[in-house]
């Protein structure tokens, strides 16, 4: 399968290990990965903060960059982020539509229909749960809010993790509770965000895990920042990074 990668702006700039692992993983599974050069951002931050007018050019750029998927240039688009996939699927067409850009909105809806979050792509499209990964560490999984409640990825990430060789997967307490990131919420309501983060850090620490894994680097940036500040020694990793790990590769 020919797969276009939407790396997401935050991972491209700050957490390149997630899209790199996505490339490694998909190529190992025998697929061709393409990184369309025009991409920048999906527009989620602007929409969710209320700057919808400012989101329009950002979204148009994303839609134009990935529109070739409609012409068969690639089979699907993969996004290693639950919240960006959620924004692409549930916000982009609506924003363009309401800005009076009907034709672009229809293109956006078409692109969105061919866009998958990583665990969705693996389980639903590629039909694989055991990706041949090896990761002999104690790991706990945080289901990010938008993966859980916007995309409804359900237990797909857990099924993928459970098939990883050597892994010791432990349950996270109050896993489904938000970590308090919420994009600009973390800045606009910093003390409340910090209070939520504190509880998340406590729950992660209580698992005794070496690694906290999630499907979204924005949440991982937040929780990781808290884990680091509290000197817990717990690392954060994207789902793709664990799935890309193999016995041959010493991590």
């Amino acid at each position: 399968m020919r797969i276009a990668l939407a790396a997401t702006c935050i991972a491209d700039a700050l957490f390149p290990q997630a899209p790199r692992a996505t490339v490694t993983l998909l190529e190992r599974l025998g697929h061709e990965v393409v990184f369309p050069a025009g991409q920048a951002c999906c527009g989620q931050m602007h929409v969710n903060t209320g700057y919808v007018r400012e989101a329009v050019p950002v979204i148009r750029n994303h839609v134009e960059t990935f529109a070739p998927v409609l012409d068969g240039e690639w089979d699907v688009v993969v996004v290693p982020s639950g919240s960006c996939t959620g924004s692409i699927r549930h916000q982009q067409a609506m924003v363009l539509d309401r800005a009076g850009l009907g034709a672009q909105a229809r293109t956006a809806a078409g692109v969105a229909a061919r866009t998958y979050e990583l665990s969705e792509l693996l389980v639903d499209v590629l039909g694989v749960e055991d990706v041949g990964a090896w990761f002999p560490h104690r790991v706990t999984y945080h289901p990010t809010c938008h993966s859980l409640r916007m995309l409804r990825v359900g237990d797909r990430p857990l099924r993928l993790l459970l098939a990883v060789g050597g892994i010791d997967l432990v349950e996270l307490g109050a896993a489904e509770s938000c970590c308090g990131f919420g994009g600009t919420f973390a800045l606009k309501n910093a003390p409340t965000s910090a209070a939520m983060l504190e509880d998340k850090v406590t729950n992660v620490r209580d698992t005794g895990a070496e690694v906290l894994v999630a499907g979204d680097y924005s949440c991982l940036m937040h929780i990781g920042g808290g884990l680091s500040r509290a000197s817990t020694g717990v690392r954060t990793m994207h789902l793709a990074e664990i799935l890309a790990s193999t016995r041959e590769e010493v991590r």
Partner: peptide, 10 residues
């Protein structure tokens, strides 16, 4: 129309 001010309604 979201994202538009009142003078450029579409």
């Amino acid at each position: 129309v979201i994202g538009s001010s009142s003078d450029d309604r579409q």
